[in-house]
Simulated scan of single mutants.
Amino acid sequence: MAERLDTPRVRRGFFARYRSEHSFDETFGKFSESFATFMGTPKFIMYMTAFVIIWIAVNLIGIYGYSFDPYPFILLNLAFSTQASYAAPLILLAQNRQEQRDRVLAENDRQRAERNLADTEFLTREIASLRLAMQDVATRDFVRSELRDLLSDLVEEIKADERGEGPSESH
């Protein structure tokens, strides 16, 4: 049964699906992180340096004798100011998102450390209780030595049987 008639239809358009899968805050946050990451690369500095050199060269030499931003380069300063006014909040947003991730990771690490400590304390108590219980029980070394003694006695009996002496009465 593909669709029920007693339930309303849900719009399945692209934008409805996009809104349901991605929130605007998350999308803008990812954009700000990628922007802040790009601004911190040597590639960005090289691009900006090339842009400024071309801007100044074009305006000093002029295109067909016309320069659109004469010497004090006011338009270039305005562009840099606009870029800085947008870059600062985007970088702060990226830092805040990283701080939130770090806080979650630190909380997870703390919880994991608490679980490890609780497990270690439990195992320590278990080992201590086993040691107390082992005072009345034969240890592994004791059992091995007893088995070795029995084995050597059996070997002696077998050798005695082969020689025809019969079983020894050492027990």
Rank of each mutant, 00 (worst) to 15 (best):
T124F: 10
V155E: 15
L117W: 15
G13W: 06
G29Y: 06
Q100S: 02
T82L: 04
F80E: 02
S23F: 12
D149N: 13
Y71S: 13
N96C: 03
E99T: 15
R115D: 01
S67Y: 08
D161P: 04
E26M: 08
R4V: 06
P70L: 05
K159I: 06
A2W: 10
A16K: 07
F44D: 04
R101L: 10
R19L: 09
G29L: 02
P72T: 06
R131W: 09
F15A: 08
N96K: 13
E107K: 14
R9I: 04
L117T: 01
R11A: 03
D153E: 11
N77L: 10
Q95T: 12
Y86V: 02
F35T: 00
A160G: 08
R97M: 07
L75D: 01
N116C: 07
L93I: 04
M1T: 03
Q135I: 13
Q95R: 14
T7V: 13
V10F: 06
S67E: 08
Y18E: 03
A138F: 14
S34H: 10
D119L: 14
D141E: 15
F73S: 01
R4S: 14
E169A: 07
F68W: 14
R115W: 12
I54D: 11
S168W: 01
E169Y: 07
N108C: 11
